[in-house]
Design a binder for these strands. Structure first.
Length: 499
RNA sequence: GUCCCCGUCGUCUAGUGGUUAGGACACCGCCCUUUCACGGCGGCAACACGGGUUCGAUUCCCGUCGGGGAUGCCA
C-alpha cells in the first residue's frame, strides 16, 4: 500500500465579516486534524470578492484565530512555500490555469450580463416556469463571434463547460457517498468580468497547488463540491478527500444568526468566555470524545482525542448554557497563577487596587491580597462576568451600598441589634492595631451568639449583607479578615445606622 | 419548485440486529453548610411516524413528515 501522505489542511475564510462561530468551528476541526496528525495547518484568505472584502474583517479573522489559539503553519504573517496566501495576490496563477482550460475547450466566454441573466430568469418565472440556473446561451457561441465581441470590448465572464450526462460523486469523510447527476449541474462562472476568479475556481486551483490533502469545510459547500470536482477533472488533477462538517443551528434549529445572540468569537470574548472554553465547546458541537469521557478538555486532550471519524453528520443547535458551563469548568480547572491573571485583568478594567493603608492578615501587597481573595472565593470564581460583583467589595466601600438585599437582611430591629452587638463585641475583643485572622472573627461571633442565646446565623446573615452588600458571598469570616477589622466595623455600624 | 443532506431525552451526544438505550447541559428533589457556589446522592426525560426485511428492529431498506443546505459574475 502507499504510505499515507502527510496531512495538509486549510481554513480559507473570506474577509467579509467577523470570525463567525461556524467558521471558527470549521477552522477548529481542520486545526485539530492537522495537529493530531502532525500535519500542516494553512490559513488562506479568500478575498476574490472585491466588493465585500475588507481590511478590518481580515484583521478580525486573524485576531479571532489568535485568540482561540489556533496557530497556522503557513499563511499570513507566517509565510510558507506555497504562497502567496491571499488570493488577491495570486491572480496570474489563476489566469494561467484559466488559459489552459480555455485552450482545451473546457471553459468558454459568456457575454450575458447579470442584467441579461436576470431578465431571462424573470421571463421564465413569469411564464410559470422554474429557472434552473444558467441556461447555456453562450456555451456554443461560435469562437469567431466570441472573439469579435471581445474585440468590441463587450464584458464577459468565463464559464466551465460541464458534462450533461452521467454523474459526479465522491466519498465524503463525514457522510460517505455523495452523488449528483451532472444534468443538474450548470455551467457556472469560474472567472468574473472584473478579472477575478470566482471562489469555485480559486479554491480548486489553490487547494491543488498548495497540496491540500483534506478539504474540510461546512456542509453548505456540499453542492459546490461536484462542480469543483469537475474543475479538478478538467485540469487533470487528482482529488483531495472531502469532508463536510454539519451546520451549526440556533437554539430554535434555524440557521444561527445575530438574532440568537452572539455569533462572532469576539462577541463571546466580550461576554467573558475564555478561549479554552470556546474551543472546547465548539469541538463538542459535531464531535464527541465518545462514551462517558469527560467533555471538559484541555487543548492537548482535544488534539489527542480528536478524530474525523467521530464527526457527526447531523446539524447541531448552539447551546449557550452549555458553553457557559464549559466556561466555568475551564476557569475552575485553571492553575492559581492563571486564575490570578484572569482576575487581575478584571481588576484592571475597574481600576481597583488594594488600599495600602489597611492592615490585612497575611496580605500586605496587591498581588498577595488578590491571591488571598481568589483562594477564599475558591470555586465561586467561575465567571469573568460575575467576578466584579463578587470581589468589588474587597476593594471599595462604595460597592456595597446599593443592593436590593438590604431591606430583607439588614433592616428591622433584630438585625440592627445584631449588627450593633457584633460590632461592639468585635471592637471590644480584638486588637484594632493588629491584623486579625478569620478564626478571630469567628470566635467572637460565635461566642456572642452563645451569650445572646441566638443562632450564629442571626449574626452572620445581616453581617454578610452589611459587609458585602450581597446575600451571597464567600465565607463571611474570611471576608472580614480580608476587609480588615477596622473597615468591617465601619460597615457593620454603617449598615445599622442606615436601617 | 428542483437537487442534496440530516432525524436517539428540551439541548449536545454514546451506542447496538437481542442493552434496565449510557453520559453531559438544563430542570427538580435531598445531603453537606454560614449564604451562594462547589461537591455527593437521587429524579424527570429520547430511539419522529408508517410500512417492510428478520425469530427479533432504535440499529438494515422504502415511504411520509419534520428540519437544514444549495439553487449567485458571494464565499
Amino acid at each position: 500500500m502507499n504510505a499515507p501522505k502527510p496531512v495538509r489542511v486549510r481554513f480559507a475564510p473570506s474577509p467579509t465579516g467577523y470570525l463567525h462561530v461556524g467558521g471558527a468551528r470549521t477552522a477548529l476541526f481542520n486545526w485539530l486534524y492537522a495537529r493530531s496528525q502532525k500535519g500542516t495547518f494553512i490559513l488562506r484568505i479568500e478575498d476574490t470578492d472585491q466588493e465585500r472584502s475588507t481590511q478590518e474583517s481580515y484583521q478580525a479573522i486573524l485576531d479571532g484565530m489568535n485568540w482561540l489559539g489556533m496557530d497556522w503553519d503557513e499563511g499570513p504573517g507566517r509565510g510558507g512555500d506555497f504562497g502567496p496566501y491571499l488570493q488577491s495576490e495570486r491572480l496570474p496563477i489563476y489566469r494561467e490555469h484559466l488559459e489552459k482550460l480555455a485552450t482545451e475547450g473546457h471553459a468558454y466566454r459568456c457575454f450575458c450580463s447579470p442584467e441579461d441573466l436576470a431578465a431571462r430568469e424573470k421571463a421564465v418565472t413569469d411564464a410559470g416556469g422554474q429557472w434552473e440556473g444558467y441556461d447555456g446561451k453562450c456555451r456554443d457561441l461560435d469562437p469567431a463571434e466570441a472573439s469579435k465581441l471581445e474585440a468590441e470590448g463587450k464584458p464577459f465572464a468565463w464559464r466551465l463547460r460541464t458534462p450533461t450526462d452521467g454523474s459526479t460523486f465522491w466519498y465524503d469523510i463525514v457522510v460517505d457517498k455523495r452523488e449528483f447527476q451532472n444534468e443538474v449541474l450548470v455551467d457556472r462562472v469560474i472567472f468574473k468580468a472584473d478579472g477575478f476568479p470566482t471562489y469555485q475556481f480559486a479554491c480548486v486551483v489553490d487547494d491543488h497547488l498548495m497540496g491540500i490533502t483534506h478539504v474540510l469545510r461546512g456542509d453548505d459547500h456540499v453542492s459546490n463540491t461536484p462542480f469543483q470536482i469537475l474543475i479538478y477533472q478538467a485540469l487533470g488533477w487528482n482529488l483531495p478527500k472531502f469532508g463536510h462538517m454539519p451546520m451549526i443551528l440556533g437554539p430554535d434549529r434555524k440557521r444561527l444568526s445575530k438574532r440568537h445572540g452572539a455569533t462572532s468569537v469576539q462577541e463571546f470574548q466580550k461576554q467573558g468566555i475564555i478561549p479554552e472554553a470556546m474551543m472546547n465547546y465548539l469541538a463538542l458541537l459535531g464531535w464527541s470524545p465518545g462514551g462517558n469521557a469527560d467533555e471538559v478538555m484541555t487543548r492537548e486532550a482535544l488534539i489527542k482525542k480528536f478524530s474525523l471519524k467521530k464527526v457527526n453528520s447531523s446539524p447541531g443547535a448552539f447551546d449557550y448554557d452549555k458553553l457557559a458551563h464549559i466556561n466555568s469548568e475551564q476557569i475552575k480547572r485553571k492553575s492559581p497563577e492563571e486564575r490570578h491573571a484572569l482576575a487581575a485583568g478584571v481588576l484592571a478594567e475597574h481600576g481597583w487596587r488594594m488600599d495600602p493603608e489597611w492592615k490585612i492578615h497575611n496580605a500586605t501587597d496587591s498581588d498577595t491580597y488578590l491571591a488571598r481573595i481568589l483562594k477564599t472565593l475558591g470555586n465561586r470564581f467561575s465567571s469573568l462576568i460575575t467576578l466584579p460583583e463578587q470581589i468589588g467589595f474587597f476593594y471599595t466601600d462604595d460597592h456595597w451600598r446599593d443592593d436590593e438585599a438590604w431591606p430583607s437582611a439588614v433592616q428591622g430591629p433584630e438585625n440592627v441589634q445584631a449588627l450593633t452587638a457584633l460590632a461592639d463585641a468585635l471592637e471590644a475583643e480584638l486588637d484594632m492595631d493588629q491584623p486579625q485572622p478569620a478564626e478571630a472573627f469567628e470566635n467572637v461571633t460565635r461566642a456572642l451568639a452563645g451569650k445572646l442565646e441566638i443562632k450564629a446565623g442571626a449574626l452572620i446573615h445581616p453581617s454578610r449583607v452589611a459587609l458585602t452588600g450581597q446575600l451571597r458571598s464567600a465565607g463571611i469570616f474570611e471576608v472580614m479578615e480580608l476587609v480588615g477589622l477596622r473597615r468591617s466595623l465601619a460597615r457593620l455600624r454603617r449598615a445599622a445606622s442606615l436601617s
